[in-house]
Nucleic acid binder design. Structure first.
Length: 204
DNA sequence: CCCGTGATTCTCT
DNA sequence: GAGAATCACGGGC
């Protein structure tokens, strides 16, 4: 039986839908993935790896089968499975899933959430699983967390990725058709510039 | 709809 | 090095 890394080493657009139905477990909590997004390190302006290796994205350039965790918006973690041949820097963002084990622990981490919303979105998924920066680079075959491939769903839908300004048209998001735990689509927000306190009100 | 939040990266010195 | 823009989001109204 081939290892997880081999299964993830193919082209990211082939690998991404294969992750639907897979189970991601961290300690007591396990989540069956229902929604993912592909990011290709090459010619994909939406990818963190597009402008080359940096301190943050270095794990993406390593071997397939590792977890790439990043922190964003000052409060959220999101996690990806690194795919493709080493150096290609492809990854699949794990966007949503259904809690299939350890639901009490997951509820404790997401107070006030309904069960359906526990892992309905990439940052919620990380929170429900207790994934943070310390898990960046973890080997998904043997480490914590662990990814186990499962039976792919019969009916998979595709559509544009969520929240990107760049390359938003690429239909590289994959989800289990009709599943209640798939996240709500939000187009990229046009963010208001934060006041800088400088350059305002200067005389002309 | 609106906005917090702060690490990370980019650009210019 | 410093300052500024960016950000693959979520919760509240």
């Amino acid at each position: 039986m081939p290892g997880l890394a081999d299964a993830l080493a193919g082209p990211v657009l082939d690998v991404a839908p294969r992750l639907l139905g897979a189970t991601l477990r961290n300690g007591d909590v396990a989540i069956r993935l229902t929604e993912v997004e592909a990011y290709d390190g090459q010619d994909d302006p939406g990818s963190h790896a597009y402008n080359g290796m940096t301190g943050r994205n270095a794990v993406m350039f390593g071997p397939a089968g590792r977890l790439y965790v990043y922190f964003t918006y000052g409060m959220h973690y999101c996690c990806n499975a690194v795919c493709g041949p080493e150096g290609r820097a492809s990854a699949v963002l794990l966007r949503a899933g259904e809690v299939v084990d350890g639901i009490d622990v997951a509820r404790g981490r997401r107070p006030g959430s309904t069960d359906r919303d526990l892992a309905r979105g990439p940052a919620r998924l990380c929170r429900a699983l207790g994934i943070d920066r310390s898990h960046n680079g973890a080997d998904l075959a043997t480490g914590e967390p662990t990814l186990t491939l499962g039976e792919p769903p019969d009916d998979v839908s595709t559509g544009p990725r969520v929240g990107l300004r760049l390359a938003a048209d690429r239909p590289w998001r994959f989800w289990v058709t009709g599943d209640a735990t798939v996240s709500v689509y939000r187009p990229a927000a046009v963010r208001k510039r934060r006041p800088t306190g400088r350059g305002l009100g200067s005389s002309v």
